[in-house]
Amino acid sequence: MDRLMDNSGITRRALLRALGLLGLAGLGGTWPGAPWTAHAQAQGPGSLASLGPEEPVDVTMKRLFGSRPIKDGSSAIKLELPLIAENGAVVPVSVEVNAPMAPQGYVRTIYIISDKNRRPLNAKFTLSPTMGQAFVGTNLRLGETTDVRAIAELSDGTLLMAKREVKVTVGGCGG
């Protein structure tokens, strides 16, 4: 019985030491079980830290506009999108805001936000009065069937929003 106790005591000590070493290795970030830690500090404007966070659309809206009221701009904003996008990788969108573009009042920014993308803010277009017309277009990637919003910020701070749903047959975000 005594010998058994002795043996188990040593085993326990050895086990604890081994665990301690494992812990240190884990802190150093070299433990092979976690290969991504080696790249945890990617640098540059394309690194994960520089991208917009992955978040639900409500959080994006709050981050961009706080609690500012957003008016219904469906009459002022012409948002062109396909009803059904067979290929989510290329979804043409265009936004035209029916508002004067004069130095004393113009459309300052147009945001394109798709609700169900991992990072909902897709693009931000900053315009100037010399453009004569608030019109922008591009091609979006949409992961799944989603609402797409166009939000126009006028130079006096008014926010207008138009929204449309696009049915996406094949997602365009690569899984």
């Binding site: 290329v90 993308n117 693009a123 931000k124 277009f125 900053t126 453009m131 019109f135």
Partner: peptide
């Protein structure tokens, strides 16, 4: 324009 990865490959833009 500030763009993200939600813009398609070979990006296309139009403006006036």
């Amino acid at each position: 324009f500030e763009t993200t990865q939600s813009i398609s490959e070979n990006p296309f833009f139009s403006f006036a």
